[in-house]
Amino acid sequence: MASLCPAIFNFQSLLTVILLLMCTCAYIRSLASSLLDRNKTGLLGIFWKCARTGE
């Protein structure tokens, strides 16, 4: 977690982290769609939204 903090303050690194999150969520959804599809709302809904955007 400590190595993620400097990435938040650098705009290019922050965009890289967000893009990596979206691609990872889309990949996980392609393998096990029920894992992300059952959590469309709430805090875990962020991962579902990232997966849909990443597609």
Rank of each mutant, 00 (worst) to 15 (best):
8 I>Q: 08
55 E>T: 03
20 L>T: 02
1 M>R: 10
10 N>H: 05
22 M>A: 11
29 R>Q: 11
45 G>D: 01
38 R>G: 07
52 R>C: 09
49 K>T: 05
24 T>F: 13
47 F>P: 01
10 N>L: 06
27 Y>T: 08
54 G>L: 09
18 I>E: 06
34 S>F: 15
49 K>G: 14
24 T>W: 08
3 S>Q: 03
45 G>Q: 05
37 D>I: 15
26 A>E: 08
6 P>I: 07
17 V>N: 03
16 T>C: 12
50 C>G: 13
31 L>R: 13
26 A>W: 11
39 N>E: 12
17 V>Q: 10
1 M>A: 09
45 G>V: 02
32 A>R: 08
6 P>C: 08
47 F>C: 08
52 R>P: 02
27 Y>N: 11
26 A>K: 14
51 A>I: 05
48 W>E: 10
18 I>Q: 09
3 S>N: 05
1 M>Y: 11
34 S>E: 12
50 C>I: 06
45 G>K: 11
15 L>W: 05
11 F>K: 09
48 W>A: 03
32 A>D: 11
45 G>Y: 07
28 I>M: 11
12 Q>K: 14
34 S>T: 06
22 M>S: 06
47 F>Y: 09
19 L>M: 10
39 N>P: 07
21 L>Y: 09
2 A>C: 08
27 Y>W: 09
17 V>W: 11
31 L>Y: 15
37 D>M: 15
15 L>Y: 05
48 W>P: 00
39 N>C: 15
29 R>P: 00
10 N>G: 00
9 F>N: 09
39 N>F: 15
